[in-house]
Design a protein around this nucleic acid. Structure first.
Lengths: 228, 228
DNA sequence: CTAGACACGTGATCC
DNA sequence: TGGATCACGTGTCTA
């Protein structure tokens, strides 16, 4: 029953080989036999043409159905109706999955940016919202006011950064520094009015200082311009 | 041509009403007429049954095709073959979209956790990876070793937290505190070996202390158990 | 008028 | 056996 598809995956084609004695590229040659079956030559020619056309139409439709079966997993039966039914169910499951994944994306984005949905419902109910809207809103760039990188000996680099403070600056700044895969010995972040003062002690060599400064600057810029 | 679907959306059904004179619930009554067409009663009865069965089969297949057309947007033509083709294209576009969104999700997760893909290609090429794998791996819980919340006057609350330090503890901790929508005056984070010492000055009232301590604890636990 | 699309009835096949 | 499925040829309608 259900192993039928595995045993004979080309069900219709096998039927073709059994029943369809005028398949393949032999249609034109067989038009003569159709003429022999109908002695009056006036009406026989369009009839055979219609037969060929209808044959091609059926073949195209079956090929389309076969292609549809190829892109849909979890095919239960090889029926035409079942294939269409499985395709419908699969599309609907893809719709649900897409909504769920987009909800997850929005949840993650709001966690990264706004942090407004912690005490809301456990599973974010705000489905069916375009993810582009969540991306294009609430980007809070980090404005670098001052950046000093100095070597203080003992394989230790001191980084001083003064920047603007917006809603999520602290988190984004931590992300920037974590993204650089540095060994952070001590971090001190102080917020005064709208300014943010950061002092880092990082394990590093003296010759890495200039590269490190460039790295931090570009990392902050990259983080402020998400390429999505 | 292309407005044909809007003018007559029930193309096949209208065809039914014109051509199919034995539709609806009248199949049984019409079996007599089929018997009249074939005088030999022995073979006529199974033939009429087969006719009815085939009619139902065709109707079911058309209904399925109609339902498929309903779940697929951007239908170009009303042809059977075109409907199946549009469904195939739509499923493949959904596949691509799903891969893209999952890549974005993985990218976001890796940004939040590992921070390994900053200097890679701008558009993450690591498609076709299950998102569940990205979720179930690399969860680094924050282990609370000590948590003190004390009131120091002047509408200022001092929070001291000692916890374990793993790869992404600092970022996650900042996320926790940002999620509470507190007014952070000063933050000091120091990492020594595998321990993380955090000192926060928060703007708050004395009577909010116990609630604040509970809030921080639960927030950390909630962040360590993402409900996805 | 021609070409394309559809439903119909029928015989064959499979389980 | 018989119910379900399929391909086929044909008539009909529309663009």
């Amino acid at each position: 029953m259900e192993n039928f598809a595995e045993i004979n995956p080309n069900y219709w084609e096998s039927i073709h080989q059994i029943q369809d004695y005028s398949w393949g590229g032999l249609e034109e040659t067989f038009s003569g036999s159709y003429d022999s079956s109908s002695p009056d030559g006036t009406q026989s020619v369009p009839t055979s043409k219609n037969i060929v056309s209808e044959r091609n139409r059926r073949k195209k439709l079956n090929d389309r159905l076969f292609a549809l079966r190829a892109v849909v997993p979890n095919i239960t039966k090889m029926n035409k109706a079942s294939i269409i039914k499985d395709a419908i169910d699969y599309i609907q499951s893809l719709h649900d999955q897409e909504s769920t994944i987009q909800a997850e994306l929005i949840e993650l984005q709001s966690q990264k940016l706004g942090f407004k949905s912690l005490d809301s419902s456990p599973m974010g109910k705000s489905k069916k919202k375009r993810v582009d809207e969540a991306f294009e809103s609430k980007v809070q760039p980090i404005e670098i006011l001052e950046l000093n990188v100095s070597y203080v000996g003992e394989k230790t680099v001191l980084v001083g950064l003064k920047c603007s403070k917006r809603k999520d600056t602290i988190v984004r700044l931590c992300e920037v520094f974590e993204s650089l895969n540095l060994i952070i010995l001590t971090a001190n972040i102080s917020a005064v009015s709208e300014r943010l003062f950061t002092t880092l002690f990082i394990q590093g060599e003296e010759e890495e200082m200039d590269a490190l400064k460039m790295k931090i600057e570009t990392a902050i810029k990259v983080f402020d311009n998400p390429q999505i």
